[in-house]
């Protein structure tokens, strides 16, 4: 599986996801600087990592969405190349329009860094096939602007097309407002593109993919990708 991690000025989870990819796939991903417009054409996976690209100035992900590499990312998205946007990467994907909706300031205005419980809504994707839909997973979030906003038609479209990948829930798996850390519409923590080949999510699966880090619930996302893309 050939993967590339796009590195923006201010990315800070690029190495974390690279370590996880190497660990799971046995191959080092290409670390691709945002200013280089020439993205290799033989990639199986493009990762937009977490961090604070361009200092989160103007809006989170807004300037990264205009980076020289993004034209190539769009072309490859049209070709169906798999893409994973984590946290700031999710914000960038929304800003490019490759995913619908937007990510706003958290409901309580605070930066939140903690483990949350998630319900995997659909396992019929290259990202989630190895998850047991009956099991609640625990993965950390770390963001100030993770409040997913989508208008009602967009929300209905996401539901109808099975494009909500994960939702915030409580430890018992109940999708309730008390388990919504940031005010996201319908507890949405991650969404898929129309062809289900692009996933953006606020939680950080790469941060809990090794027993030495205190848990492995994030690992199945990468093993799912390995199985689908190798």
């Amino acid at each position: 599986m050939k993967a590339a991690v796009i590195v923006f000025p201010g990315s800070n989870c690029d190495r974390d996801v690279a370590v996880t990819l190497r660990d799971v796939t046995g191959q080092d991903p290409r670390m691709h600087w945002h200013a280089d417009p020439d993205l290799p054409e033989d990639l199986d996976l493009i990762v937009l990592p977490g961090g604070f690209s361009h200092g989160d100035y103007l809006r989170c992900g807004a300037m990264a969405a205009q980076a020289p590499v993004i034209a190539a990312v769009r072309r490859q998205a049209q070709r169906g190349v798999a893409m994973l946007g984590i946290c700031n990467g999710f914000q960038v994907l929304c800003e490019t329009g490759l995913l619908p909706g937007a990510l706003m300031r958290n409901r309580d205005l605070t930066y939140i860094c903690k483990d949350v419980h998630l319900k995997v809504v659909t396992t019929d994707t290259i990202f989630t096939s190895r998850y047991d839909p009956a099991r609640v997973v625990r993965i950390p979030i770390a963001h100030h602007d993770g409040n997913y906003v989508a208008d009602l038609p967009t929300q209905c479209m996401l539901e109808d097309e099975d494009r909500v990948a994960v939702r915030y829930c409580d430890a018992a798996g109940r999708v309730v407002d008390e388990a919504n850390p940031n005010g996201s519409t319908a507890n949405i923590a991650g969404v898929l593109s129309e062809n289900h080949r692009i996933l953006g999510l606020m939680p950080h699966p790469e941060r809990l993919a090794d027993p030495r880090l205190g848990g492995t619930d994030g690992r199945a996302l990468f093993t799912s990708l390995l199985e689908a893309l190798s």
Partner: peptide, 9 residues
């Protein structure tokens, strides 16, 4: 349209 505002919101 391209940068300064996010017309989704």
């Amino acid at each position: 349209r391209r940068l300064l505002a996010n017309t989704v919101i």
